[in-house]
Write a protein that binds this DNA or RNA. Sequence first.
DNA 1: TCACACATGATAAATTGATGACACATTCAG
DNA 2: CTGAATGTGTCATCAATTTATCATGTGTGA
Lengths: 221, 221
Amino acid sequence: MARLLIVEDDPDTNDSICEYLKGAGHQVHAAFDGQQALDLFESFPIDAIVLDIMLPKLNGMEVLREIRQSSDVPVLMLTAIKDEQTQIASFDGLADDYITKPCSIVLLGKRITALLRRAGKGKDVRSWEWKDLAVNFYAYTAYKGNEPIDLPQKELRLLKFLIDNQGLVLTRNQILDELWGLESPESDRTIDLYISRLRNKLGIDCIKTIKGIGYKLEGSE
Amino acid sequence: MARLLIVEDDPDTNDSICEYLKGAGHQVHAAFDGQQALDLFESFPIDAIVLDIMLPKLNGMEVLREIRQSSDVPVLMLTAIKDEQTQIASFDGLADDYITKPCSIVLLGKRITALLRRAGKGKDVRSWEWKDLAVNFYAYTAYKGNEPIDLPQKELRLLKFLIDNQGLVLTRNQILDELWGLESPESDRTIDLYISRLRNKLGIDCIKTIKGIGYKLEGSE
DNA sequence: TCACACATGATAAATTGATGACACATTCAG
DNA sequence: CTGAATGTGTCATCAATTTATCATGTGTGA
């Protein structure tokens, strides 16, 4: 699931794109001119933009330029203009992809997915699996094989933090900040304790100690 | 600058792509069949791949699948196949982009740049590389080629320091200052020891002794 | 050519300090 | 009150680091 902004002046085209992407599980905002696109972008959190070039009020290139003043959000240009200079100008304006109409709506979806994946929007993992372990952050449940594991809040949050940063080393301080914020416990032992509890409950040794630094979750990359 | 792998069986096409990308400041490896692509990918650190589909030995889809077993490197499919199913299959196989030939070489460059920019986000800034050695301070890992090397903190920092100053001689005092600061150990032997451990673990003899002065990492001179 | 001094390499042993394990204290909800 | 979740303190263990010791190599002057 991602929050998408579709900018396209033709109502029919806009509508069918939106419907398809909603069906694919995304949350979709529709804009029909450049100014509206900027307004919507200001008002809602947006993960990626599909942007036509020929638009009323502000054209797509201007919208792109405006957005890039303040944001690195992924932008996919979708336009009837096949001219190479326009494509080059789009990429120079830091667009992420460029598709010419007419275009298969399925492929558009695939390209959006690829872009989101690369942009790291898939980073906020809602579920995670590794070997016979599975964690679901919607239901806040964890499974080892088919056995549910009982993980109290802190342990689950620690696990999620590790998963969100899998492969990267987290220092004790980072973990303290994330789980406790200001009201950190005194003792360094506390973190070791939670790590140790997680290791016991998970069974597999997927949490690695970096002595003198912190811990990291083995990447499943 | 990025390290690119171009996989394309037609020598002329391959060559002209490589030349153009070299001209754009990249470091380029060329592969002419699928197996060679995998071999090169194993042997060198690669930042992005341009991958044809119709290839001798292993076709592009198989190469993609193989690479995605172990790596999230950006992959741009470049092929004469216009068929939608193939495009969909590519994106489902976690390709990042798909271009059909013939294609403007300038646009190819632009798309590679866009992809690298997007993939570089959140990438490890604190990463040092020299030949087939790489040190990553986010993950606290070191790699020789694609093999991870287990390096404790001090050894990792020493390696980083050497890579940072490749080709320059570092005196024992400089190394002491960098790694220990004020709380330097008494014994001069300590440094020799770490150097010796690094040499063992790295395998290749890339650390040169300058008698009476210190050590240096062989430059590319 | 042959000692000799000196710098470095290699190895083992000692030391230090971080971590893992566990028992227990505290808090909080029902 | 009871039980679960969370936090603290202690101590044994183990790995990283350091020291100590001896072997090896290299250049110098007799």
